[in-house]
Lab assay of single mutants.
Amino acid sequence: AQASVVANQLIPINTRLTLVMMRSEVVTPVGIPAEDIPALVSMQVNRAVPLGTTLMPDMVKGYA
């Protein structure tokens, strides 16, 4: 199954992502693919992302 990017902590709005904030997990619905984690580093989220939330393309500025 495809692993997705999941928030490893609460990520406040406009925060630049770092590796420690993200983990890969097989979840439904599928979000951003886990292999994109390196590309997500330093991108900003456009909303607060609670712990355990799957990151979707529309949550990350410049990803989609």
Rank of each mutant, 00 (worst) to 15 (best):
A1G: 14
A1M: 12
Q2L: 13
Q2C: 08
A3M: 14
A3R: 06
A3N: 07
A3G: 12
S4V: 02
S4E: 00
S4M: 02
S4Y: 03
S4T: 04
V5K: 00
V5S: 04
V5P: 00
V5C: 04
V6S: 02
V6W: 02
A7G: 03
A7S: 11
A7Y: 02
N8S: 08
N8M: 06
N8C: 05
Q9G: 07
L10Q: 15
L10V: 14
L10G: 09
I11F: 02
I11T: 02
P12M: 09
P12H: 11
P12W: 06
P12K: 09
I13E: 08
N14Y: 15
N14S: 14
N14V: 03
T15M: 14
T15I: 10
T15E: 09
R16T: 15
R16L: 13
L17D: 01
L17C: 02
L17G: 01
L17S: 00
L17F: 02
L17E: 01
T18Y: 04
T18S: 11
T18C: 04
T18G: 04
T18I: 06
L19H: 07
L19W: 13
L19K: 06
L19I: 06
L19T: 06
V20G: 09
M21Q: 03
M21T: 03
M21S: 04
M21E: 00
M21N: 06
M21W: 02
M22E: 00
M22N: 00
M22V: 11
M22Q: 00
R23H: 05
R23D: 04
R23V: 04
R23M: 04
S24I: 09
S24W: 09
S24T: 15
E25K: 08
E25T: 07
E25N: 13
V27Y: 02
V27N: 03
V27A: 06
V27W: 03
T28S: 12
T28R: 03
T28C: 08
P29G: 03
P29E: 06
P29V: 09
V30T: 09
V30L: 15
V30R: 04
G31C: 03
G31M: 02
G31T: 01
I32Q: 00
I32T: 01
I32E: 01
I32Y: 02
P33T: 08
P33I: 12
P33S: 09
P33W: 15
P33K: 12
P33Q: 07
A34M: 11
A34D: 11
A34T: 08
A34K: 07
A34I: 07
E35F: 12
E35M: 09
E35Y: 11
D36C: 07
D36A: 13
I37C: 04
I37W: 03
P38Q: 11
P38L: 10
P38Y: 15
P38E: 09
A39C: 05
A39T: 15
L40T: 01
L40I: 15
V41I: 14
M43D: 04
M43R: 13
M43Y: 11
M43N: 05
M43A: 12
Q44I: 15
Q44T: 14
Q44G: 05
Q44W: 12
V45D: 01
V45F: 01
V45M: 14
N46E: 07
N46V: 14
N46K: 07
N46F: 12
N46G: 06
R47N: 07
A48W: 08
A48R: 07
A48G: 08
A48D: 15
A48M: 13
V49R: 03
P50C: 08
P50L: 14
P50H: 07
P50A: 11
L51F: 14
L51S: 12
L51Y: 14
G52H: 12
G52M: 06
G52C: 04
G52L: 04
T53Q: 12
T53N: 13
T53H: 15
T53C: 04
T54H: 03
T54W: 02
T54P: 08
T54D: 00
L55E: 00
L55K: 01
L55M: 10
M56W: 06
M56D: 05
M56A: 06
M56R: 10
M56C: 05
P57D: 07
P57E: 06
P57L: 04
P57H: 08
D58V: 07
D58S: 13
D58W: 14
D58F: 10
M59G: 03
M59S: 07
M59W: 14
M59R: 03
V60N: 02
V60A: 01
V60G: 00
G62Y: 06
Y63I: 04
A64F: 04
A64Y: 03
A64C: 05
A64I: 12
